[in-house]
Design a protein around this nucleic acid. Structure first.
Length: 226
DNA sequence: ACCCAGGGTCATA
DNA sequence: TATGACCATGGG
């Protein structure tokens, strides 16, 4: 099995800490996790700015907002009708915990059964990546987020383990990190590793960047493996 | 004019 | 289990 920690260290040393996720509050991070589904972050920023302008970047206000107006507000992030419903669903779920992230953190800290993750996955519109983004970035719980860049990277640089699916890859990374880092440091390292992979894929390793030695994280990259 | 982006759901075979 | 259609905007 390929070792992930050296890759993590290399990225971190080259780029420095990224301080993810961009967002002022945990709820804003949750919203961003929904809005960025298959969408460029730039388009998400436009939508978040509009939500902020309307005062809806707050779970109570968003829950009370008219669904059609909410959809209009997030228009720039694409799939806006679906995403407006997803946001409503998220608000309804968050309401059950009194809109309190602290309550979520205390109630589900170190839960070996991962019940909170299961709850998020049961929500319509929340898949594995969105759930783990919320757990890792909004709640700072020890979950590693696997995304398209991570999968492409694995398939190209570690073909022998390239058959791993989302869940297997997440568990593999989490297991390796647990052996190398103290429990209290895990959320920060999972945060940083995923951030580095996405940053590299989305901003460094782009097809138009002549400085990028290997543009291998694009969707249709034909470049040879090293 | 195409291709892509920090996915997820559902129907079909 | 594994594809494919669908959702939809803005930038390269």
């Amino acid at each position: 099995m390929i070792q992930f920690a050296p890759v993590y260290r290399r990225l971190l040393e080259a780029r420095g800490p990224l301080g993810w996720w961009p967002g002022r509050t945990p709820f804003e991070i949750m919203v961003g996790a929904i809005l960025t589904q298959n969408t460029s972050w730039r388009n998400v920023e436009l939508a978040i700015a509009e939500l902020r302008r309307r005062g809806w970047l707050n779970p109570r206000r968003m829950a009370a907002a008219d669904p059609e107006q909410l959809a209009l507000a997030i228009r720039s992030s694409g799939y806006y009708n679906q995403k407006a419903q997803k946001l409503k669903t998220l608000c309804r779920w968050f309401w059950r915990y009194g809109y309190s992230t602290r309550r979520l953190q205390l109630q589900f800290a170190s839960d070996p059964e991962h019940r909170l993750r299961a709850e998020l996955l049961a929500l319509r519109g929340v898949g594995p990546e969105t759930a783990d983004s919320i757990l890792c970035y909004a709640l700072q719980l020890p979950y590693f987020v696997v995304d398209a860049y991570t999968m492409r990277w694995l398939r190209r640089y570690a073909p022998q383990t390239g058959h791993l699916r989302y869940e297997e890859l997440r568990v593999a990374v989490e297991g390796q990190f647990r052996r190398r880092f103290a429990a209290a440091e895990l959320p920060g390292h999972f945060n940083e590793f995923h951030a580095q992979l996405v940053h590299h894929g989305a901003r460094v390793c782009t097809a138009r960047n002549p400085d990028c030695a290997q543009c291998v994280l694009r969707k249709r990259c034909r470049r040879q493996l090293e």
